[in-house]
Structures are given as structure tokens and as C-alpha cells.
């Protein structure tokens, strides 16, 4: 992850600047305050999905990559909002049957995908929307990979 994201900012320009292709339109601007709630709701969804993955990862190593990606997504979003904290997630109990447990993970990822998509379309900041679109794209890739995953 880029070092520019280390310091908490209010979704400032250096945080989630688009690449050169878009930068010709001028520097990114900080989003209006209402995006902070939006980010918080996506972070909460990421934390929930991570909790599901953490429980499931003990049974399938292939889920580790999804979990790692979501942790990076969450870290960036938390770092972008001043004073943001990681919300506590509810304890997760997965079915003992591996196939049913994997189904729970797939449903969880679909729920996350919907939440990220809603956040992207509602974001006042174009830069934030772009970051959320990338998270949605990443989640779509991991979900596609999970769709072919066979329970151990």
C-alpha cells in the first residue's frame, strides 16, 4: 500500500488520487462530510466480511487471499477518514459442513459487493467512488474465484 495513505486524512487529495490519466482535470478535492458516513458503512461491511473469512480460513487456505485483500481495502478506507475506528464485528459461526460453510462465505461476499456498489454510486467524491469501484472489482474477482472453489 502506498505510503501516502499512512496518515489519517479527510479523504484528501494525496490519499486516493486517480492516476495521471484523470489528473489532467486538476487536483482531487476533499469530499463533502456526508461521505464519511458512507465510508464508515463500507468499513463495517468489510469488517463483517472479514470476520466470516477469518472463521472460514481455518478450513480453506484459498480464502486467505480474499481476507488479505479486504484487510487492505479496510485499511485504506479507515486511513482516509479522520478519527475512523474499526467497528467490532459480531462473532461468526459457520456450519460444520465445508460446502455449506463455503456457501455462507459466498453469500457474505455478495452482500459486501452490494454494499460497496451502493457506496460507490452514492459517493459525492469521484475519487472515493473510484476507490470503491476498485474494491468492488476486486471483490468480483475473488467471488468469481470462489465460485469455482471446491470445499475440502
Amino acid at each position: 500500500m502506498g505510503s501516502a495513505l499512512a496518515a489519517p486524512l479527510v479523504l484528501a487529495a494525496c490519499d486516493i488520487d486517480p492516476p495521471a490519466r484523470e489528473s489532467s482535470s486538476g487536483p482531487a478535492t476533499a469530499p463533502p462530510p456526508e461521505d464519511a458516513d458512507l465510508v464508515a458503512s463500507v468499513v463495517a461491511e468489510l469488517a463483517r466480511a472479514e470476520a466470516v473469512l477469518a472463521e472460514a480460513a481455518t478450513r480453506s487456505a484459498a480464502l486467505g487471499a480474499v481476507r488479505t485483500a479486504h484487510a487492505a481495502h479496510r485499511e485504506l478506507l479507515i486511513g482516509a477518514v479522520e478519527g475512523a475506528e474499526l467497528p467490532a464485528s459480531e462473532p461468526v459461526h459457520l456450519p460444520d459442513d465445508p460446502e455449506r460453510a463455503l456457501s455462507v462465505v459466498r453469500r457474505s461476499e455478495r452482500r459486501l459487493q452490494r454494499a460497496v456498489r451502493e457506496g460507490c454510486t452514492a459517493a459525492a467524491s469521484g475519487d472515493l467512488a473510484r476507490v470503491l469501484a476498485s474494491i468492488a472489482a476486486s471483490t468480483a474477482q475473488h467471488s468469481a474465484a470462489l465460485s469455482s472453489e471446491v470445499a475440502p
Binding site: 488479505t68 476507490v131 476498485s134 468492488a136 472489482a137 476486486s138 468480483a140 474477482q141 474465484a145
Partner: peptide
């Protein structure tokens, strides 16, 4: 957004692997 997620997922059909920041490699 819909088209971005389609292109991202379709990469797996072409031998690609899931990425953390598809479309935003600077992150």
C-alpha cells in the same frame, strides 16, 4: 461500475488472478 466489475471478473477467464486494487495499481 458494472462494466469495471465485469472486466475484472472476466480476467479470470483469461488466466488472470484476483487483485487487491484492479484498475487502481497505484494503491
Amino acid at each position: 461500475l458494472t462494466e469495471a466489475t465485469w472486466s475484472a471478473a472476466w480476467q479470470l477467464e483469461l488466466g488472470g488472478t484476483p487483485q487487491t486494487w484492479p484498475g487502481a495499481p497505484e494503491l
